[in-house]
Design a protein around this nucleic acid. Structure first.
Length: 236
DNA sequence: GCGACAG
DNA sequence: ATCTTGTCGC
């Protein structure tokens, strides 16, 4: 696919922060999802090498609503940005973009491993990626970055609002009865309500939404393959 | 100053 | 995220 919007990649947290504060003006969280035309969901995930110097990425495309795996796309690359809470997108998006540039297949919505709007500057990884791709995206994180909430009831489908002071920044959603909830927030080009509905519909069986779960399985297979083989120069 | 802190 | 063994429960 053509990436409709690109920018330089900052080397410092201060530059990254300025970019987040600039790009967040592009968020549109009032766009309803076209459920009637929803046919495919993409999922993206990252894995790190044991020494944390290299990262492995996978993007999968699933059919909706069956959530059947349709295609797998992978890439790897060096780590070029440290892990700093609030700046995850600058670490993980560059290698994901390598995949999306090569992707010929279309998809309707993207589910990302990490927060979207539920971010200190309202511009988490899902917001950043959605903005670059010009596609609707939802952020689904396994733990909280910021915000306050009340514990959802323990049945699957129970949820609570995730607040930053008085402002809603996301949801806390129980995708499996009796299991720790996930944190759902819109990335871009989607509403809070549609983000919540999509996250639940994408998680019929496991705690983690199927697009992320499948991407996670693929990314670990890729890492195993790449770390198992001997470097070319050492063979002969 | 202290604690919290997506992956 | 990664490292790391067994263990409890469906």
């Amino acid at each position: 696919m053509i990436i409709p919007f690109e920018h330089e990649w900052p080397q410092t947290a201060a530059e990254a922060r300025a970019l987040q504060e600039q790009l967040r003006a592009r968020l549109d969280l009032n766009q309803p999802l076209r459920w009637d035309r929803l046919r495919t969901i993409a999922g993206a995930d990252i894995s790190y090498s044991c020494k944390g110097t290299r990262l492995y990425a996978a993007v999968v495309v699933l059919e909706f609503p069956s959530l059947k795996l349709r295609s797998v796309h992978t890439a790897s690359g060096p780590v070029n940005f440290p892990y700093l809470p609030g700046y995850l997108s600058f670490r993980e998006i560059p290698v994901l973009l390598k995949i999306f540039r090569r992707l010929t297949e279309d998809f309707d919505v993207l589910v990302c491993d990490g927060h979207g709007y539920a971010h200190p500057r309202r511009f988490g990884l899902a917001c950043h990626l959605a903005t670059l791709l010009g596609k609707p995206a939802v952020g689904c994180a396994k733990s909280r970055l910021i915000g306050q909430y009340q514990e959802p009831a323990w049945e699957r489908g129970s949820f609570q609002v995730l607040y930053s002071d008085q402002e809603q920044i996301g949801w806390v959603l129980r995708t499996r009865t009796g299991v720790k909830p996930i944190f759902v927030s819109p990335g871009n080009f989607i509403t809070f309500e549609d983000a919540l509905r999509l996250a639940l519909q994408a998680s019929p069986r496991y705690r983690v939404p199927e697009p992320i779960r499948q991407a996670h399985l693929q990314v670990n297979q890729l890492r195993l393959r790449e770390e198992t083989q001997v470097p070319h120069a050492a063979i002969q």
